[in-house]
């Protein structure tokens, strides 16, 4: 987020300092030991809680995925990788492949639409104007709503000849009307619309925080230098938002792969079973847990995990590396 950084190392500084009233510095070994105490002390609690309550259950899920298990009693029928690659495995099920495709649409769509939209809104809402707080609240509200509410709400609005259709007709766009939730070719785009509606607020709040981190002095300096509002945004603000934007992209990407709630409540089981709107996560519940095929469901979970992991790795390697490097590599070991 900051721009240039001086390259004077701390070590140099330390030597350059006159020996003053400070007490003698402890030995290097003691400092390293202390550093490790701090590291462990600060990350320990988080790591333990995380390992016990998130990683351990995940490990079990991998274990279960190797079995054929109906959820009653303990798994006994070992099946190896059959849930993944066997004749009844996930990769052979066209509905699962449909789910993969749907996840891809949502991922691409979310990145392409929510980001620029939220960015534009954040830049606009970052300026002072009356009622700004209220506007921010209103835009954030969709994110706060629970998924049950979102599902019911949109079902009501998108009914045939319901509110949405009425509005469109009044705007003269009646010819666009179709079965928003029933037309199998359209429903995934309806899902994308609802997701955009709900999650742009999330992007917005991240960007607002990022903007708040940019010192006013920078933008004011640009203004003083004669830059227009747009130029200031383009050459100062947005670049400084860079790492926030990249973090948001990462989270949006992962969220798109894991999407469950909105799809579950806003589309009917029938539409999902035809592969028109399901995601990998809803497929996992529909075809795994709800059919008492717990082993199969866990296998889908593991597949989802592996895909997310690969995506995360690629993203970290090619995109986020810049942030991590920029912020840290110019530091000195100490």
């Amino acid at each position: 987020m900051t721009t240039a950084e001086p390259t004077v190392s701390l070590a140099d500084r330390a030597d350059a300092r006159p020996a003053g009233p400070r007490p003698a510095r402890s030995s290097r070994a003691a400092r390293t030991r202390r550093k490790w105490y701090e590291i462990i002390g600060l990350t320990g609690p988080a790591a333990i809680v995380f390992a016990v309550f998130v990683l351990a259950p995940m490990g079990f899920a991998v274990y279960y995925s190797l079995y054929r298990w109906s959820g009653y009693g303990w798994p006994t029928e070992f099946r190896g990788l059959e849930n993944y690659f066997g004749p009844y495995g996930a990769f052979r099920d066209p509905i699962f492949l449909d789910a993969l495709r749907n996840n891809g649409i949502i991922l691409a769509g979310s990145l392409a639409i929510q980001g620029p939209l939220a960015l534009a809104m954040a830049l606009l809402l970052n300026r002072r104007f009356r009622g700004r707080s209220v506007f921010r609240l209103l835009v954030f509200v969709p994110y706060v709503l629970s998924e049950v509410t979102v599902g019911i709400m949109w079902q009501l609005i998108l009914l045939r000849d319901g509110t949405a259709d009425t509005v469109l007709t009044n705007l003269g766009l009646g010819s666009l009307i179709t079965g928003w939730l029933a037309n199998l070719d359209v429903v995934i785009w309806t899902m994308l619309f609802i997701l955009t509606w709900k999650y742009t607020g999330f992007a917005l709040i991240l960007f607002l925080a990022g903007l708040a981190n940019i010192p006013n002095e920078l933008t004011e300096a640009a203004a003083i230098d004669g830059a227009s509002w747009w130029q200031t945004q383009r050459y100062v603000t947005i670049p400084m938002l860079g790492s926030t934007i990249r973090i948001w992209m990462f989270l949006s990407m992962i969220g798109s792969l894991q999407v469950f709630d909105v799809i579950w409540v806003a589309s009917t089981p029938a539409v999902r079973s035809l592969g028109a709107s399901n995601s990998m996560a809803t497929y996992m519940v529909d075809h795994g847990f709800n059919q008492r095929e717990w082993g199969y469901g866990n296998a889908v979970a593991v597949i989802l995990f592996v895909i997310s992991f690969i995506a995360a790795l690629l993203f970290q390697r090619f995109v986020l590396r810049r942030d991590v490097e920029g912020a840290l590599t110019r530091r000195v070991k100490h």
Binding site: M58, A61, F260, M280, A281, M284, A301, F305, F309, A312
Partner: peptide
């Protein structure tokens, strides 16, 4: 972040 919560819920 990468693991669906619904899968780990039962264990």
């Amino acid at each position: 972040l990468l693991f669906p919560a619904a899968a780990g819920i039962l264990p």
